[in-house]
């Protein structure tokens, strides 16, 4: 265990764990747009930057992304230093210029006092903030169905060749974890469409309720050694089945006793 100082308070931390983890554990609010615990930090949004210094640095300080900076003994961290706040407002201002219509961006920017961008707004822009959460989750789950394509201002998230990705199983993790709810999908009539790919959902053999796609169920069964029969019923019907089984046993017990 090591000790670091965050906003004047000495706290314990594990050597090498990322500053953001410690900051969040201390319930200090530091905004992030590209952070997700399921994936490796990437340092893309730059909102989690903090000011760091050490007594032996002679008053010199540095600005680092807390999601990627390992905690070290004696480090002094300021999560809301004047320069840090200015940096965050400036970055949110840039975001606001690029995605003026995104409610999530507008709200976060407003929290840092940016109600209107001072820069030229991008007209006809979309709400994809290129945080890479979707692509990193897809990679971590082992599908690699979508990735960042292109570079600079024209960068976008897309499947290979912009065609329905063969590797996608329709788990929807990309869409559900998008911080700006930008990734669209359509679920109706027992089917799902995402990234221009159509999927069939597994319908519960009892009640018809759908939970995941057939492709996802087959993938899990094949790669994670799960009996495919487990996927035939929905959670509710499974619970009823369990109650029925346990009920029968208890009833035998009851009859045997009486």
């Amino acid at each position: 265990m090591i000790h670091i100082t965050i906003n004047g308070k000495v706290v314990q931390a594990k050597d090498g764990e990322m500053l953001l983890t410690v900051i969040r554990r201390e319930k200090i609010d530091v905004p992030t747009l590209c952070h997700h615990e399921a994936v490796e930090p990437s340092g893309a949004c730059r909102l989690c930057m903090v000011e760091i210094t050490k007594p032996e640095w002679d008053g010199w300080c540095d600005y680092v992304t807390s999601c990627l900076y390992p905690a070290a003994d004696g480090l002094i961290v300021n999560t809301h230093a004047k320069k840090v706040n200015e940096l965050r407002s400036s970055i949110l201002d840039m975001y606001l210029a690029r995605h003026p219509k995104s409610p999530e961006i507008r709200q976060l920017a407003a929290e840092y006092g940016v109600l209107k961008t001072q820069f030229e707004e991008v007209v006809d822009g979309d709400n994809c903030i290129l945080c890479g959460i979707c692509t990193r989750i897809c990679d971590t789950m082992g599908f690699h169905a979508i990735s960042m394509v292109g570079r600079g201002h024209g960068k976008e998230v897309a499947p290979p060749l912009n065609m329905a990705p063969t590797a996608c199983v329709g788990c929807l993790s990309c869409a559900k974890n998008c911080p700006t709810n930008y990734i669209e999908y359509n679920m109706e009539n027992g089917g799902l469409t995402i990234w221009k790919k159509d999927f069939e959902m597994v319908a519960c053999t009892e009640c018809g309720k759908t939970t995941i796609t057939k492709e996802f169920a087959e993938y899990l069964s094949k790669n994670r050694d799960i009996n495919i029969d487990y996927f035939r019923k929905c959670d509710e019907c499974h619970r009823k089945e369990l109650a029925g089984t346990m009920g029968r046993i208890s009833n035998w017990d009851r009859e045997a006793r009486s």
Partner: peptide, 21 residues
């Protein structure tokens, strides 16, 4: 630089773009 920015981090991608504008 706007063209060659990889586009990963916001200040480089959006900031250089705005400077150029």
């Amino acid at each position: 630089l706007v063209e060659e920015s990889c586009g990963k981090c916001t200040p480089c991608r959006e900031g250089l773009y705005q400077l150029h504008k």
